[in-house]
Simulated assay, not measured.
Amino acid sequence: MLKAPVVLAGAMAAGLALTPTPRASAELARWSPDRAHRWHRAQGWLVGANFIPANAINQLEMFQPGTFDPRRIDSELRMAKHIGFNTVRVFLHDLLWVQDRAGFQRRLARFVDIAAHHGIKPLFVLFDSCWDPHPRLGKQRDPVPGVHNSGWVQSPGAEHLGDPRYRRVMRDYVVGVLSQFRHDKRVLGWDLWNEPDNPSDVYKAVERKDKIERVAELLPQVFGWARSVDPVQPLTSGVWDGVWGDPARRNEINRIQLDLSDVISFHSYADPKGFEDRLAELTPMNRPMLCTEYMARTLGSTVETILPIMKGRNIGAYTWGFVAGKTQTFLPWDSWERPVMDPPLWFHDLFNGDGTPYRAGEINVIRELTGRNRPS
Results as ranks from 00 to 15, higher is better:
Phe51Gly: 03
Asp277Ile: 03
Asn194Gly: 08
Phe111His: 08
Val144Met: 10
Cys291Leu: 09
Ser237Thr: 10
Met285Pro: 00
Gly371Val: 09
Ser179Lys: 06
His37Pro: 00
His348Ile: 05
Gly224Asn: 11
Pro65Asp: 10
Pro231Asp: 06
Glu217Asp: 13
Trp336Thr: 03
Arg255Thr: 13
Asn198Phe: 15
Phe347Asp: 11
Arg359Met: 09
Trp31Thr: 09
Gln99Asp: 15
Arg313Asn: 14
His134Gln: 10
His40Ile: 03
Leu260Arg: 13
Trp336Ile: 03
Lys273His: 12
Trp190Ser: 00
Val177Arg: 00
Gly361Thr: 12
Tyr203Asn: 02
Ala80Asn: 07
Gln221Tyr: 01
Phe181Tyr: 14
Gly138Val: 08
Ala80Lys: 03
Arg30Trp: 08
Asn198Glu: 11
Ala116Pro: 03
Glu217Ala: 11
Asp132His: 14
Glu159Gly: 06
Trp193Thr: 02
Glu368Ile: 01
Gly355Met: 09
Met285Tyr: 10
Thr236Met: 13
Arg107Asn: 14
Glu217Phe: 07
Thr356Arg: 11
Gly361His: 13
Pro247Phe: 09
Asp191Ala: 08
Lys311Gln: 13
Ala115Glu: 13
Leu219Lys: 01
Ile73Ala: 04
Gln99Glu: 11
Ile212Trp: 03
Gly10Gln: 15
Asp210Ser: 07
Glu213Asp: 14
Arg359Lys: 10
Gly48Met: 05
Leu260Ile: 01
Leu16Arg: 05
Ser129Glu: 14
Leu18His: 15
Met285Phe: 14
Arg338Glu: 13
Gly119Glu: 07
Pro199Gln: 10
Lys209Ile: 02
Leu95Ala: 09
Asp354Val: 12
Asp184Lys: 15
Ile83Phe: 13
Glu281Ala: 05
Val90Leu: 07
Leu331Asn: 04
Pro343Glu: 11
Phe127Thr: 06
Gly353Ile: 06
Ala80Val: 05
Thr356Ser: 14
Met1Trp: 12
Lys273Val: 15
